[in-house]
Write a protein that binds this DNA or RNA. Structure first.
Lengths: 194, 194
DNA sequence: GCTTGATTTGAACAGGTGTTCAGTTACGCT
DNA sequence: AGCGTAACTGAACACCTGTTCAAATCAAGC
């Protein structure tokens, strides 16, 4: 037996990435074998190499895709003029975007050390780009006197760490709606910088 | 050749744990083999099993030890009476304690999914105990009217996520001293809850 | 100095790893 | 209807995995 019924590149390709994403998030990159991914897709391990040159690239593509999505989404929405409204917008955007794709977020934080140095540098650069967007908001707010932050760089990292932390506990259908969570976090962020 | 010169249980035991901690933090639990740990200690892989029943227990003992240290250290210091002073104390304590042992902190966040369900439950319970200490401070502060927090549980998790985030970027000898960092974070925490 | 027991070796076990490739099969196109 | 090729299989490669255990060796107590 060789090619299976209904096989198609446009179908198998995405399924490989989806299976890898789910398995990497669940067990970790190093703990997942190519044969496990193949089994999930319903294919032999060798067939995966039609869709990725190697396991490392599979991980990198997932992280790179996630960061691209993040930066694209940020640029796609229209941003209000004043810093405080921008900061609220950023807070709600960050929480909403990250809660929408918990697995990609998870491996983007957990599997950085499994990237080759070259691949790591690419991802880190994209992340810095995202952080700069927040820092620019804080900087403008401080210059115009609406924010009181002693160190915009640290405040940037602190806010992002706090917001991303939502992913560790939030489950839809729980005590609070996503919008309520956003509002609570926005309340803390606003007070922390004003 | 069998037993090597100068071999002693009281020496090799700690060295096994130290090597495992360093390697797990650097490459991840699943990516590190018992033979790698043994090489770091200067011993054959089989000898490790005098000090741990298996690889899983090695990980669990590291995480358990870290959480015990954390809870013990928190109880060891004397705590001020009023909630605001307590919160400042907690903020500085958390940052200082975590910056002192970055590797243990790292694996405590990264390798939870590699614990067996039983072991995971133990660690999670210890973590909840630590979080409860912060939540109690917030609760008291809200009851006495000095804190304005809409949801103590969420604020607890938000603050801890923010504070632990320091470990991702702080390097001693950098632009800011540890005490300056503590002060900046305390400024944000204080404003966020009052 | 000898014995006892703790400590470690080195080999073995059964199975798993990422990756390659010749051969086979089913799909898309004419 | 038949051909070309994209898609996939199954086996193989060389090596690594956690764990066990008889045998060898060293440290300590008498």
């Amino acid at each position: 037996m060789a090619r299976t019924a209904g096989s198609h590149s446009g179908i198998t390709g995405p399924r490989v990435r989806e299976a890898a994403l789910r398995l990497f998030a669940q067990h970790g990159f190093a703990a997942v074998s190519m044969r496990q991914i193949a089994k999930e897709v319903g294919v032999q391990a060798g067939a995966l190499y039609n869709y990725t040159p190697d396991k490392q690239s599979l991980l990198f593509d997932l992280l790179k895709g996630h960061m691209d999505d993040l930066l694209t989404a940020r640029q796609a929405v229209s941003w209000p003029p004043d810093p405080e409204a921008q900061l609220e917008h950023f807070t709600r955007f960050h929480i909403a975007f990250h809660l929408e794709r918990p697995e990609a977020v998870f491996i983007s934080y957990m599997e950085l050390r499994n990237l080759t140095p070259d691949n790591f540098a690419v991802i880190e650069d994209l992340r810095r780009r995202y952080e700069s967007a927040l820092e620019a908001i804080l900087q403008t707010g401080r210059d115009t006197g609406v924010f009181q932050v002693p160190d915009t760089k640290i405040t940037t990292l602190a806010i992002i760490a706090m917001l991303t932390g939502v992913n560790t506990w939030y489950r839809s259908g729980g005590r609070l709606s996503q919008h309520e969570v956003e509002t609570i976090y926005w309340d803390m962020v606003r007070k922390a910088v004003t």
